[in-house]
Design a protein around this nucleic acid. Sequence first.
DNA 1: GGAGCGATAGGTCGTACGGCCTACTGCCGG
DNA 2: CCGGCAGTAGGCCGTACGACCTATCGCTCC
Lengths: 214, 214
Amino acid sequence: MTRVLLADDHQLLRQALRRAFEDSGVMVVGEAADGEEATRLVDELRPDIVVMDVTMPVLDGVEATRRIHSAWPDLPIVMLTMHGEAELRAEAVRAGAAAFLTKDSSMQEVVATVLATAAGEALSPDLASTILAEFAETGTTLPPRPAESPLTKREEEILQHIADGYSTSEVAAKLFISGKTVKNHLASIYDKLDARDRTQAVLSAVRIGIIRIA
Amino acid sequence: MTRVLLADDHQLLRQALRRAFEDSGVMVVGEAADGEEATRLVDELRPDIVVMDVTMPVLDGVEATRRIHSAWPDLPIVMLTMHGEAELRAEAVRAGAAAFLTKDSSMQEVVATVLATAAGEALSPDLASTILAEFAETGTTLPPRPAESPLTKREEEILQHIADGYSTSEVAAKLFISGKTVKNHLASIYDKLDARDRTQAVLSAVRIGIIRIA
DNA sequence: GGAGCGATAGGTCGTACGGCCTACTGCCGG
DNA sequence: CCGGCAGTAGGCCGTACGACCTATCGCTCC
């Protein structure tokens, strides 16, 4: 019998999934309320498959997937998410997720996907299309971070420092370059991000997720 | 028999709740995937009670609750939320929610709360404590917005415009005040948010959630 | 080998920005 | 009734900022 581990911080959903699985002859061997607990229970219970929510306290689903996948490369992990953000999908794929479902799915879909994945279907059709799209886009194997950022590494570095609260001259000092060069990079950043000042540039970068907000 | 309307954008959770209710002899007369649909179905189906998620597309649960409550003041509405944020609870109470549950609750708790609420228990113990705490805190009736923001309304307004991409003089023009006054407000904002320029002020405000990031 | 780009650096210019100050009005609370 | 705060407005000053320009170096791609 298929042995599944559920990881979701909402008890309500865990109960719902447990019932759906048990009705379909799938055994739920454990439940985790956060990513840390999930990684621990995987080691302890050795499930055949893991169903994991993306957003969880302590350790989020993507990071937990990354850790579990590196320890148990053959263990399929099905991810659940609130909404089907493309960015998140790509991230989940990189972390090692075998399938990807939104919570808009029905119980039947979830169970079917889990059974199919456990049975060896490498990738859900849904996930396959995401991957194919990514391959087509980058033309290579999955890099650690494709970063569809329009900025160069240096530009991102400079903008990050600006977001961290440093002035032009302070950024220059930190990077051992001229303040003039920092301003040049900023001008290029404004151009690329369609921003007219550092405030808008930082907000744009935050929006598209290329810089970290302290 | 108690007739309940479910409003949640996640089919998975709706199915789970429907089952739990039906097993307990509660009739689910309808399901809504967003707040707008919920308000419409209430008019159409006249349920005895509504169970509604806070976060939903089109029209969020709080706003939907507000509308339903103003149209049907006697219809009890039980709100579900991901996490038990105090701010959200207060907001939900003001909107007219009769009870408040997090998704960390078990199915049994949800069903029990819904039955108790439908049976006439005005407020769940949980909710009552929230309300009492709020009264103790403010000492008055519920104000429209407690807003633990260090900024005044005007300052928030100005900072929001800055975040929206407007310059000092543009903000002044939009608000029909002098550019000098805008700068005065900004100086006050920098002081309160411990920021040294508009970029840091906007980021601080985003962090503490007092301005909306476009 | 040249074209192109990223990173570096510089110049100039106008202005927006931010610090620090005074001042008046209206309102609320003691 | 007066003190304090929010909102309004102004002056002054130094400088950081952003626009626009040229220029060099090294790398890669064709």
